[in-house]
Simulated scan of single mutants.
Amino acid sequence: METALYVLVLVSLALIVAQVTAGRRHRAHVLGLAARLQDSTPVRDVEAALPSMVADFARRNGADPVRPNRVATFHQAGELRVRKGGAFRSFLAWQVVALGRAGFLWEARQTGASPFWIRVLDAYIGSEGWLKVWLFGTVPIAKAEGTDVTLGEAYRYLAELPWAPDAILGNPDLAWRVTGPDSAEVRMTVQEGTARVTFRFDATGDIVRMEASGRPARDADGNLASYDWRGQFGGYAWIGNRRIPSTGEVGYVYPSGYETYFRGRITDYVVST
């Protein structure tokens, strides 16, 4: 009995050590990716090429094209479901967004009482996009990459520009055009294709909705598909030194109708050189 207990203790300690070691390696990997974004091109002043409603939005919310800002960093709390019709699970996330070129890193970990918690890394770095999922934070269980994933991540970068007003004024890879009295489209061409997102502005000039057609995705069976994509922004407030929407949600328009899969709230915000 004592021998069995001794073996159990040794095995438990070995598992703990392995988990801690894997966790440190994972963290070092994530920080290395974030450093690549922080070393990216700083913003440039492209305001003269922007429609007035777009430039006014960025300026009013604190964008400063004169300072050589490189990234915006913030934390989120929210809910996410990983498949159509699935249950929402709460998460906490850390995100880094490049401002002078396209790029982002989003690391989220599940919170709550589930013993099988997961960690997600969604990224677009060096013109490549990927999604990785780990069980218990360190055991890899899923990975998505390739042409469709990279193009989908380019769509995400565009859709989240309300959270990066400096990129609106400072990323020359973005092309804007007015599409209506209260709407403007932004597009970005990458090797995998062209990502396009349309923003809707309210009467005060704030972006409140996002729309995109044919974003690459996966259906319930894991097959490649494309769906229209919708999102909403709200709760504009000064967080750190930028005025941004504090809340946002996004979802797909499936053949059966629209379904939200992400709801998040920004808890802090920093722009840095």
Rank of each mutant, 00 (worst) to 15 (best):
G214H: 05
F262D: 05
D228I: 13
T189G: 13
A220G: 06
Y258D: 00
T194Q: 12
V197L: 12
V208G: 03
G257N: 06
D219L: 11
I266K: 13
A184C: 11
Y227G: 11
S246E: 00
G248T: 05
W229L: 08
P255D: 03
S226H: 09
W229I: 02
Q232Y: 06
G234Q: 03
L224P: 04
G231S: 04
P216F: 05
R263T: 03
T204G: 08
S213Y: 08
V253D: 03
I239T: 10
G248L: 09
S246C: 01
F233L: 05
Q191W: 12
R243I: 04
G264P: 02
G251V: 06
R265S: 05
S256V: 10
R187E: 15
V190S: 10
E211S: 14
P255F: 13
S213G: 08
S256N: 05
G234K: 10
R243C: 04
F233Q: 02
E192C: 13
A203H: 08
N241D: 15
Y258M: 03
N241I: 00
Y236T: 01
G235H: 07
F199E: 08
R209L: 02
G214K: 01
A225H: 12
A203P: 05
V208H: 06
I244W: 03
Y254G: 07
V186N: 09
D228P: 15
V208L: 06
A225R: 13
T198G: 07
A212K: 03
T267V: 14
D202C: 04
P255R: 13
